[in-house]
């Protein structure tokens, strides 16, 4: 295990500076993960059969593959990519590698807003992602506004602390809503822990669109994100409007996180773990980091969701719980490695 980790670390160090090769390797891994995810489940589909099962409407497994697994895999990949990219953006916005969409209160706010929409307008399910998005963006702006609405020097730490405070506020709101509307608790459970169970094509379309848009915006702004790797005085000395760049990065991060939350609920750790792991292999500059984090996040979530489906079959674990179980120890290992 140790030797394998060392070999991977060595290889990734050699691959550093070759983002093209890394991207190809990551894309191949994602493709493999998607095939596995489509193949595995209560009804096993041989990998060789998958193309036919998708294309041929008379194939016995066509319904399972085309209507259930394919949208779920697509949504899983989009959610994973969105969370990883959102984490990367928010880490740049607060210049702290420990930031993630959850820590800034963005996912909690999107989740609370989504829950309120479920309760108030049960007949309008399409409203949930829109309201969740507005909630996430609102939280991001609130955190940024609070951190800047003072004459004292603005440190990224203020942003994080403001986010932590807001996060507990919105978790309280979630708890209150869940308690008051306990009759709808089953609908909430998956949302609060994070799950891709019962994902439809329209869910997949929403999150894939938000993810593609957010990723395109983030990649377009890669050069500005790189300047946020410098301290404020140095970044503004080369002509960056630091405040505007921070707000833009956090807003795009909120777009991505809100899109992911609206479909998959409150998934933790993807946004924190993936960018930090990819940074080791690809370095901190965003033109390489963003696409690689997107691919790695997508792969992680597709694999984790497959595992959640088959690990305790016929029961299905919520993927959010599984991710936290895997993510927390891995992150502690990353920290220990850094200290050493």
């Amino acid at each position: 295990m140790r030797a394998a980790a060392a070999a991977i670390a060595l290889r990734s160090r050699r691959l550093r500076g070759h983002p093209g090769a890394l991207a190809a390797a990551f894309a191949a891994l994602l493709a493999l993960a998607c095939l596995l995810a489509i193949a595995a489940g209560a009804v096993a589909v041989p990998i060789a059969e998958i193309p036919r099962a998708i294309a041929d409407a008379t194939h016995p497994q066509h319904a399972v593959v085309a209507q259930i697994r394919l949208p779920r895999v697509l949504a899983g990949a989009a959610v994973g990519a969105a969370l990883a990219v959102a984490g990367t953006l928010l880490q740049a916005a607060v210049r702290n590698p420990l930031a993630d969409p959850g820590l800034l209160g963005v996912t909690a706010a999107a989740g609370a807003a989504g829950l309120v929409a479920i309760v108030l307008f049960p007949e309008w399910p399409a409203l949930v992602p829109i309201v969740a998005f507005a909630g996430g963006l609102g939280a991001a702006l609130l955190v940024l506004g609070f951190a800047y609405a003072t004459t004292r020097p603005v440190g990224p730490l203020r942003l994080v602390l403001a986010g932590v405070a807001l996060q507990s506020l919105f978790f309280a709101a979630i708890a209150v809503v869940t308690f008051l509307f306990a009759d709808r608790a089953p609908a909430f459970a998956g949302f609060v822990v994070g799950s891709l169970s019962g994902t439809s094509w329209s869910d997949a379309a929403i999150v894939a669109t938000a993810t593609a848009l957010g990723l395109a915006l983030a990649l377009g702004g890669a050069r500005w994100l790189d300047l946020l790797l410098l301290d404020d005085a140095s970044a503004s000395s080369v002509g960056l409007s630091v405040r505007r760049a921070r707000i833009a990065a956090a807003s795009i991060g909120a777009l991505l996180a809100a899109g992911a939350v609206s479909v998959a609920g409150l998934l933790s750790f993807v946004g924190l773990v993936v960018p930090n792991a990819v940074r080791i292999a690809a370095g901190p500059t965003h033109r390489a980091l963003l696409p690689l984090a997107a691919l790695a996040g997508a792969t992680l979530l597709v694999l984790a969701d497959s595992l959640a489906r088959v690990a305790a079959a016929p029961l299905e674990l919520p993927v959010g719980a599984l991710l936290a179980l895997l993510g927390a120890p891995y992150f502690l290992w990353l920290l220990a490695r850094k200290v050493a």
């Binding site: 301290d231 005085a233 140095s234 000395s237 370095g283 901190p284």
Partner: peptide
């Protein structure tokens, strides 16, 4: 302004892993 005046602050810092050439290249931003 950044094309006319460059300022090096007292304790400049950049994120871990930024390479020297990448750091210098950010001076071209303006």
């Amino acid at each position: 302004f950044a094309r006319e005046v460059a300022r090096l602050p007292q304790d400049p810092v950049c994120a871990e892993g930024v390479r020297v050439d990448q750091l210098v290249e950010s001076g071209r931003h303006p």
